[in-house]
Design a protein around this nucleic acid. Structure first.
Length: 278
DNA sequence: CCTGAAACCTGTCTGC
DNA sequence: TGCAGACAGGTTTCAG
């Protein structure tokens, strides 16, 4: 499920309370449980992992790219939801261990923070130096530093096609398959264009499109598709993703689907020409 | 450096 | 109803 807007929705909910329950800030931890060992990344950290938590207190929740950062001084619990991860705060009365629960923290009041993940792709880290995990991440696309000038330089230093670059977390942190397709459509750029072929104007449109799509996604609490993530409604506002064969909302041309970087890629052949317009 | 394929996993949906 | 196969919002690793 999770791209930047969905992860941001989780973070806000855990921090301020919301769809996953009440805020976890300033809650003291009584115990921790791990139900699927491979969920814990960094096998060397496994020793004493669960025993570290009792008595510690959650002090902050933040986001970096698609990572959730839960500050439990003096360490940080990092969570990446990958494809099917889910986080929720459950009441003390809800003691059942879910079929897909992989990790949980039980607070002293009995409530729990539960990480469930049917496909087992999600990962958590407990570390005193989060930068060791997050260090290779690229720019935050909603930060001030994400400008057309910055992106133009990055794209023109690359030999890759544009969608591959957008999906690369080392360049921009937080974009995934849906929001990349939506942004490229909004900017009128074919996903298979060479990154270095984009003009100054096209890069400016792309920066604007990426930020608008992400902000819209956050505003709708992210997108919920199928059985995975619940609570968001941005899926009702997709203009290109998942609309293969349907008419483009701009020109009516049938939307096409191809594969780029092993991901389904949707585009309008009319609004997103393969070659630059003269 | 770049691309493509495979691997990690399970649940859901489609078609016969 | 059953079953095989395709497919899914992500990332890492390896071969070429």
């Amino acid at each position: 499920m999770p791209e930047l807007p969905e992860v941001e929705t989780f973070v806000r909910s855990l921090k301020y309370g919301g769809m996953t329950g009440n805020s976890i800030i300033n809650r003291q931890i009584a115990s921790a449980d791990l139900f699927w060992n491979r969920t814990l990344a960094g096998s060397d950290a496994a020793e004493g992992f669960l025993e570290w938590f009792p008595g510690k207190t959650v002090r902050d929740v933040a986001r970096r790219g698609k990572f959730i950062l839960i500050s439990v001084p003096p360490k940080t619990l990092l969570i990446h939801l990958r494809m099917s991860g889910d986080l929720k705060v459950t009441e003390a009365s809800d003691a059942e261990i879910g079929k897909h629960d992989r990790f949980r923290l039980t607070f002293t009041d009995g409530d729990r923070l539960v990480f469930s993940d049917p496909r087992k792709f999600g990962r958590i880290w407990l570390t005193a130096s989060p930068e060791a995990v997050l260090g290779s991440l690229g720019i935050e696309p909603l930060d001030d530093g994400f400008t057309p000038e910055w992106l133009y330089d990055k794209l023109h230093a690359s030999n890759r096609i544009i969608k591959s670059v957008l999906l690369d977390q080392r360049v921009i942190a937080g974009l995934g398959n849906i929001y990349s397709d939506e942004a490229l459509f909004s900017a009128g750029i074919h996903p298979a264009r060479a990154a270095r072929s984009l003009s100054t104007e096209e890069v400016a449109r792309l920066v604007q499109a990426i930020q608008t799509v992400l902000r819209d996604g956050i505003q709708y609490n992210g997108a919920s598709i199928d059985w995975v993530y619940r609570g968001g409604s941005f899926q009702h506002h997709f203009k290109i993703y998942g609309r293969t064969g349907e008419p483009c909302l701009i020109c009516g041309t049938k939307i096409e689907k191809t594969t780029i970087s092993q991901r389904d890629t949707h585009f309008c052949p009319c609004c997103q020409p393969r070659m630059e317009k003269n």
